[in-house]
Design a protein around this nucleic acid. Structure first.
Lengths: 157, 157
DNA sequence: CTAGATGCAAACTGTTTGCTCCGGT
DNA sequence: ACCGGAGCAAACAGTTTGCATCTAG
């Protein structure tokens, strides 16, 4: 993420555009949203049946370093990737786990505040919003309403 | 016959204060900062040599649910825990990996913005600041001075 | 032609779980 | 005494790596 600034410092070992990398990039696009390495793997395999997960991971790392994809490392066990390398926020649904983009302006003023508070030289921040997507919120309401009427209900499902 | 009547979903099954849990809590305190499960394990083991990592994880989860510790799930591979259960932000040094508290007020207004942008029912946010701690910044400057060659420094901020 | 990438499988790391016995309340 | 908790080890999931072979530039 900070790598964009010092691209000059480290000479770029020009990225070899292999068949696999192309497929990888295409797979992320095709997946849309924020696929996991495994989802990308499955899609890429449709074109290149012999591609391996190791290659996926290796290249996801490399492409991220080159700013061609974004690696989203937030809470949870699994990393996700985003074809949109521009900085933007994400929101995660606590109900179903889906991840969506959030279009809002950057709150980079927090970085100034944090510097004042810590003495760190702040270079960035990473934020993830948490909540319930519309679907899960609706579902939650439905359940809540049902539970209100008969709290001790235990009929099947 | 299961008595579901008094088993409301949200009900806290009052926490049994075992020797292990006490040791666990003590270990987090003693570790200070933001220990990993493994660090906590090592410290707790000094008192309770037979305590197991499984117990550590199980209880870390439970104690976090009860708000007695905070689980910090940010970028990186490993989860960290914090004896201070009150919500506060953290900053991670990209140089040496250390994690520090940031004392600044919550930016919960982002949650409103995010709701407007996504339709999600936002319940919270998680933010991690990134930067360089004083030590690493100093070191970086030292190196930079040695490597500096071009006198032209346009808009260098 | 050759530095660097691939495929494969095995290694690793952090975390979770099934089971049996134990110990708080 | 009862029931959740502890210990242990094996299972797991996601990711990384060593190595022989291939390939883009």
């Amino acid at each position: 993420m900070v790598t964009i600034m010092n691209r000059r410092r480290e000479m770029r070992p020009r990225l070899r555009m292999t068949r696999q990398r192309r497929a990888l990039l295409a797979a992320i696009e095709e997946a849309g949203g924020h696929p996991t390495a495994d989802e990308i793997y499955r899609i890429a395999k449709r074109r290149l049946p012999r591609i391996s997960l190791g290659t996926i991971y290796r290249n996801l790392g490399i492409l991220a370093e080159h700013g061609l994809v974004q690696s989203i490392e937030a809470a949870g066990r699994q990393r996700r990737f985003d074809a949109d390398a521009a900085r933007h926020y994400h929101v995660r649904c606590m109900g179903c786990g889906r991840l969506d983009d959030v279009r809002m302006k950057s709150i980079c003023h927090v970085e100034r505040a944090a510097r004042a508070a810590t003495g760190y030289e702040i270079t960035g921040h990473r934020m993830e919003l948490l909540g319930l997507c519309r679907g899960c919120a609706t579902e939650r309401d439905r359940k809540r309403k049902g539970a209100q009427r008969s709290p001790a209900k235990q009929g099947g499902a």
